[in-house]
């Protein structure tokens, strides 16, 4: 197993590449999901504010 992660001595280069890809490709959908939630909540809040005015 440790032999696999060593990548013949090039582990640092291989895993730095793979790690950054994994990081950004997880971060992007998570950020979009959070943004989506907060957008929907804002719209609901606005609707309630409008309703209470009338």
């Amino acid at each position: 197993m440790s032999e696999f992660f060593a990548m013949g001595g090039y582990g640092f280069y291989v895993w730095s590449s793979m790690g950054m890809v994994l990081f950004l490709m997880l971060l992007e959908p998570i950020v979009l999901k959070i943004q989506h939630r907060s957008l929907l909540k804002n719209i609901q809040r606005q609707k309630r504010r409008q309703a209470s005015k009338h």
Binding site: M7, G8, V14, S17
Partner: peptide, 14 residues
């Protein structure tokens, strides 16, 4: 190229 060539999978795709 030795084992570092495996960067190819994500490098070429991106």
């Amino acid at each position: 190229q030795k084992q570092y060539y495996r960067i190819i999978y994500v490098h070429v795709a991106s």
